[in-house]
Design a protein around this nucleic acid. Sequence first.
DNA 1: CCGCAACCATAGATTATCTATGCATAGAAA
DNA 2: TTTCTATGCATAGATAATCTATGGTTGCGG
Lengths: 115, 115
Amino acid sequence: MAPTEKTDLLQGTLDMLILKIVALGPVHGYGISQRIRQISKEVLNVQQGSLYPALHRLEKRGWLSAEWGDSENGREAKFYKLSAKGRRQLAQEEASWNRLSEAVELILGAAQQEA
Amino acid sequence: MAPTEKTDLLQGTLDMLILKIVALGPVHGYGISQRIRQISKEVLNVQQGSLYPALHRLEKRGWLSAEWGDSENGREAKFYKLSAKGRRQLAQEEASWNRLSEAVELILGAAQQEA
DNA sequence: CCGCAACCATAGATTATCTATGCATAGAAA
DNA sequence: TTTCTATGCATAGATAATCTATGGTTGCGG
């Protein structure tokens, strides 16, 4: 019930995470969620109900392109590739993340100060 | 218009930031937003429409207690103090933040790997 | 044949934050 | 004295992100 426990990821980072995974090489949707989980050591768990709408959103914005193909398990899967526009977007989002997370760290690192 | 630019803070961190600031000593609402802005070097800017509802939420959950008093500028202001429960909550949220932000860093740090 | 993992997808609920607005007062500036 | 700005609290409504809950298909191991 505690708000921090029911959140599987930090709001606002999903697009960046997806773009980053796709930047590592073409991959299908299901594989993206697997890699995010694996690389994050089981900490980040993207729900399918978050993943697929996000992928469609990113594609619609021209940051990803999609193409049907065969997965490693011999099944139909939609593979995504990063576009040049997507690469620029990823860079921007990384910069923004760094800026914001550093700012949060500043607050968390703030020590008691006497009046 | 880009989603990352219109965000003044990372979603989900506001409660933690407020609790942390209040943990530094009793402070009124307006002062909380000022300190967040100052300590974060003008990066984080909490809107009043986000701040006050958040304060009421935190108070209702028993993490903060409020009391009217006089501000440094001789004006009526509501001062907030952290409760024991709030202190525990803050610790939890910090732990959660660390876990999640480290996970994000793992993804961002992931390098190309050959198949 | 049955069940599960792999794959895609959408609808609706929940919730956080922002924008826009409103009000009141102290002090500086004009 | 009037006016503007900063200080201070507050709410309503819009926006948007993510989750929960579904639903479906197919390949493979038991």
